[in-house]
Simulated scan of single mutants.
Amino acid sequence: MRTQIFITIFFLIPCLFMSHAWADDIVGKWKAINDRTGVHEANILIYQNNDGSYDGKIEKIYDLPNGTPQKVEKCTQCAGELKDQPLIGLRILSHFTKHPKNPNEYVNGLVVDPETGKTYKGTIRMSPNGKKMTLNGYVGISLLGRTQTWIKSRDQ
């Protein structure tokens, strides 16, 4: 009996730590891939706030494939506190929280499209291996939105 308890505890404790590690998979640097062009447009840093929610800001912007720099340097179309803010450092993800029943899903967030300045509701779903996430921004229901796949950056 003592052996069974020991074995159960021996295998249970590492599982608890692994589930905690999976829960933080969203935190880190991500390569934002444009859903229309397939181009790696920017690096986004996602971080956890003191209240447990998650935000993300632009860390780096890449030139277009032909070497042309991105035209937009500020979020001129944004409203409120984001109006005319530089794209580098711009908070484009905010208020995401873990889904209470699915640890690989983050809900109730907001997504800012820096090209148009529009803000959308958002959800994030992590891949099982934690290396990809799908970001869905939408108005109304999630079926009427736009989805991008982002790739976890190796240089954390």
Results as ranks from 00 to 15, higher is better:
103 P>W: 04
50 N>W: 14
50 N>I: 15
107 V>S: 10
98 K>S: 04
71 K>H: 04
59 E>G: 09
99 H>N: 14
74 K>L: 14
70 Q>A: 13
85 Q>Y: 03
111 V>N: 07
77 Q>L: 13
120 Y>I: 00
129 N>D: 14
107 V>F: 08
54 Y>H: 07
96 F>K: 00
87 L>P: 03
75 C>D: 05
91 R>L: 09
105 E>S: 12
128 P>D: 13
54 Y>T: 01
75 C>M: 02
46 I>F: 12
55 D>R: 12
66 N>S: 04
42 A>L: 10
79 A>C: 01
106 Y>I: 00
107 V>P: 05
59 E>L: 13
49 N>P: 02
78 C>M: 11
99 H>P: 01
79 A>E: 12
68 T>R: 15
65 P>V: 01
126 M>V: 04
95 H>E: 15
48 Q>M: 13
119 T>F: 05
73 E>T: 11
57 K>V: 09
121 K>C: 06
47 Y>L: 07
95 H>C: 10
73 E>W: 00
60 K>C: 03
51 D>F: 01
42 A>K: 10
132 K>A: 09
133 M>R: 03
127 S>G: 05
60 K>R: 13
67 G>H: 12
69 P>D: 09
81 E>A: 15
125 R>W: 15
96 F>D: 01
55 D>K: 13
75 C>L: 05
60 K>V: 06
62 Y>K: 05
55 D>V: 06
116 T>F: 07
65 P>W: 01
69 P>M: 10
128 P>I: 08
53 S>M: 03
119 T>H: 08
96 F>Q: 02
50 N>T: 15
53 S>V: 00
79 A>P: 00
99 H>K: 00
124 I>V: 06
45 L>C: 06
43 N>C: 12
110 L>K: 14
83 K>V: 10
44 I>H: 11
88 I>Q: 05
79 A>G: 08
68 T>E: 15
44 I>Q: 09
60 K>W: 10
94 S>E: 12
103 P>A: 04
117 G>Y: 03
100 P>M: 03
63 D>M: 09
50 N>Y: 15
99 H>F: 09
111 V>H: 07
90 L>C: 02
108 N>C: 03
43 N>G: 06
120 Y>C: 05
43 N>T: 14
61 I>Q: 09
122 G>V: 01
120 Y>P: 11
46 I>T: 07
71 K>E: 14
111 V>D: 08
45 L>W: 13
92 I>Y: 02
70 Q>K: 08
55 D>Q: 14
